[in-house]
Nucleic acid binder design. Sequence first.
DNA 1: AGCTTGGTTCGAAAAGATTAGAACCTTCAC
DNA 2: GTGAAGGTTCTAATCTTTTCGAACCAAGCT
Lengths: 102, 102
Amino acid sequence: MATYELEHPAIEDVTLTDVLFALSDPARLEIVREVADGPLDMAACGATNPDLPKSTKSHLMKVLREAGIVRNVPNGRGRLVSLRKDELDRRFPGLLDSVLRS
Amino acid sequence: MATYELEHPAIEDVTLTDVLFALSDPARLEIVREVADGPLDMAACGATNPDLPKSTKSHLMKVLREAGIVRNVPNGRGRLVSLRKDELDRRFPGLLDSVLRS
DNA sequence: AGCTTGGTTCGAAAAGATTAGAACCTTCAC
DNA sequence: GTGAAGGTTCTAATCTTTTCGAACCAAGCT
């Protein structure tokens, strides 16, 4: 089931409170930090939690994706996860940088 | 019971995720915006929600206070609420400004 | 074809957050 | 004093999130 596109919100529909909420969980924030350096195979994300069940990880990603923070596209057998950095920087200037710097 | 001091976390104990969580609720974010222009009587906060029960408002404040975002000191019959801006700016540079600007 | 890998979805249980009423405490005004 | 205004705490109900197993699917390999 890594073949079809998942839904991503348009950047203008992304709300500040949803973004803040998605970033307010340590596990999700960790994923965002990992992806900040460049796109990552989903399998490579959350390397710090190797024992995390797949359904749990999938759900964490879903929250990040639906909040508009992350893009998640099919990539062969798996998926590629990337930060929607440019879009977020335009919508909420300085926010992502200050969070990632903290 | 507006006479005694409430507990406030030391700024170095304040966590990023707690701050983000506290800001991720629209009602709480609204209070933060109101207080950003200067200290406010608690009674004056949440003027946009005049029908809000007092216990609910008290709880919203508690979350903001325990997250380290707001200071809440006795002031006569009521309480005075202020943003811990300088402290937060030192701990999480740029964060508050980018949130308030958004 | 068949197996393995990577990932989604559904469902249910457990944990946590929110909302609000009730009881209570202080301070101020009269 | 008495009363009203401003807030906290407790408790209970409700709602939302989180967590994870189970079932399933698609792609790639042999």
